Computed example of a mutant assay.
Amino acid sequence: MKSLKDLKAERLANPAVRQAYDAQASEFELARELIAARTQGDLMQGDTDVASIQKASKTLDRLLAVKGVDVDAVVADFNAARQRAQTPKNPKSKAT
């Protein structure tokens, strides 16, 4: 069985795969920064402590501004993805 490192190297040898992988680098970097901000603020994904959320929110706002992220577009994409996830893929029709 190949190790993850070997498999990744093998796949990234394909120029099309490498291009797609590199195109997502900034998204992965932002995700790592968001996780670090949560960790620094002692905020877990399910936490609802208002003070922790406000602290993390300020860090998140700063990170998004630095990255030039269009927050409205991110929210729209999130809502569209959530809607797709909630829509049944193969709705079963009932025979009458």
Rank of each mutant, 00 (worst) to 15 (best):
L30F: 03
A31M: 15
A31I: 15
A31C: 12
A31K: 12
R32N: 13
E33K: 14
E33H: 11
E33I: 06
E33F: 05
E33G: 03
L34E: 01
I35V: 13
I35M: 09
I35W: 01
A36L: 15
A36I: 13
A36P: 04
A37K: 02
A37Y: 01
T39A: 05
T39L: 04
Q40A: 09
Q40I: 02
Q40K: 14
G41I: 06
G41H: 12
D42C: 05
L43N: 05
M44I: 09
M44S: 13
M44G: 14
M44R: 15
M44V: 12
M44A: 14
Q45W: 03
Q45L: 08
G46D: 12
D47R: 02
D47L: 03
D47K: 03
D47E: 07
T48N: 14
T48Q: 13
T48L: 13
T48H: 13
D49K: 10
D49C: 11
V50F: 06
V50I: 12
V50Q: 10
A51C: 04
A51R: 14
A51W: 01
S52Q: 15
S52K: 15
S52Y: 00
S52A: 15
I53T: 07
I53Y: 03
Q54M: 14
Q54F: 07
Q54V: 11
K55C: 01
K55W: 06
K55I: 04
K55Y: 09
A56H: 04
A56F: 07
S57C: 06
S57N: 10
S57W: 02
K58F: 02
K58W: 00
K58L: 12
T59V: 04
T59E: 09
L60W: 00
L60A: 04
L60C: 05
D61Y: 06
D61N: 12
D61M: 08
R62W: 03
L63G: 05
L63T: 08
L63E: 02
L64K: 01
L64F: 06
V66C: 00
V66P: 00
K67G: 01
K67D: 07
K67R: 12
G68P: 02
G68C: 09
G68V: 10
G68E: 08
V69N: 05
V69S: 04
V69H: 03
D70I: 08
V71G: 04
V71Y: 06
D72C: 00
D72M: 01
A73C: 05
A73W: 00
A73T: 07
V74R: 07
V74P: 03
V74L: 10
V75F: 01
V75C: 05
V75I: 15
A76M: 08
A76S: 13
D77I: 07
D77F: 02
F78M: 12
F78N: 12
F78S: 09
F78K: 09
F78H: 11
N79F: 00
N79Q: 14
A80V: 11
A80D: 11
A80C: 06
A80N: 11
A81K: 10
R82N: 07
R82G: 01
R82I: 10
R82V: 13
Q83K: 14
Q83F: 06
Q83G: 02
Q83Y: 01
Q83T: 13
Q83C: 00
A85C: 08
A85S: 13
A85F: 13
A85H: 08
A85E: 12
Q86G: 08
Q86H: 04
T87C: 02
T87Q: 05
T87A: 05
